[in-house]
Design a protein around this nucleic acid. Structure first.
Lengths: 174, 174
DNA sequence: GTTAGTGCAAACCTTTTGCAGCTCT
DNA sequence: AGAGCTGCAAAAGGTTTGCACTAAC
């Protein structure tokens, strides 16, 4: 179980395994991935109502600095918050549908190849790598085409030029 | 000149080319890249002291939505702000040294290969792609090794366990 | 003359900090 | 016992919004 190795690593470094940290580690490890600080906080609060949001931030920061979690933005699909996932998996890219928000993961040799080329090309020591791709998933491509067409009809009917308007996208706190 | 094609694209869409937008477009286009909103604002203010920070944000948002600029984070090296660059160049990865902050750009076939694989593997329509790599540049690797060694000596001398402490890194507004 | 775009002030969300008190080891 | 952590309140940074006014077409 991945969580044990995390605990081990932290202990080695003289980091105290407090109740709060155990809760957070467990959540990050068990809950698949792509949690942001706020959601992690909400989940942690259920296990310990006293646990403070600040502790979540501090813990995430420590885990990130220690290389135990990776920080993602997922193309800022949901806003400006960051998402976190354990670092134990193989390197992968995140593929985000900009319409439905679904996140896919892509493993594949171009990623390793990219890393190696950067290392040899610049003599660079790669510690973190992050690839995020945004677009439309297979399902949403159809729906999107329909939406665009409807919009076109509307604006043409109103005698407007083809100026499209992007819908407001601020969905932060539900 | 790239800026002319940007203007053309905007005009086609019925976007008004205000004085402010012309200033901002010109700055983004001429000033190489990796400007954040605040720096862009400071530069724009020199050309038009009345120009407001909000206009910068609104313009960047529009350009991003219209696919004319790409948004980067550069691994949050300098904080949580976003950076922008024109989208006319070939796709490339950003390689950020976490010690000195230097940003290199990497062009190379793994990137195109990655994009194609994602498109065919998921039937995904890729609109944006972003690869950011963090680590130490050739120059900083040496210096970093020295720093780590010095830290080790210090903590050993003080009879401490090997718990390293990450230095505070909040350099936002200078 | 319209309607899109601007400036201003004020809000907003996310994240960080200072400090007193608690708790792991 | 004592450094390391936590919680609380308050701040900070970056970005967005509401609204009246201005300017591009």
């Amino acid at each position: 179980m991945a969580i044990e190795s995390s605990k081990g690593l932290l202990k080695e470094r003289g980091v105290r395994l407090t109740r709060q940290r155990q809760i957070l580690l467990e959540l990050i490890d068990k809950t698949g991935e792509h949690l942001d600080a706020e959601r992690l906080f909400q989940m942690a609060k259920e296990k310990d109502p006293k646990l403070n949001r600040v502790t979540v931030y501090r813990t995430l920061k420590m885990l990130k600095a220690g290389g135990l979690v990776d920080e993602l933005d997922l193309m800022h699909y949901g806003g400006d918050q960051h998402y976190y996932e354990t670092r134990l998996k193989q390197e992968h890219a995140h593929v985000i549908c900009l319409r439905c928000g679904k996140v896919e993961e892509f493993f594949g040799e171009p990623l390793q190849r990219l890393r190696k080329q950067i290392e040899s090309h610049f003599g660079f020591q790669v510690l973190l790598a992050r690839t995020e791709v945004g677009g439309y998933c297979a399902h949403c491509q159809t729906l999107r085409a329909r939406e665009v067409e409807e919009l076109r009809l509307l604006t043409v009917a109103a005698g407007k030029p083809a100026a499209a308007r992007a819908p407001s996208k601020r969905t932060r706190r539900s």
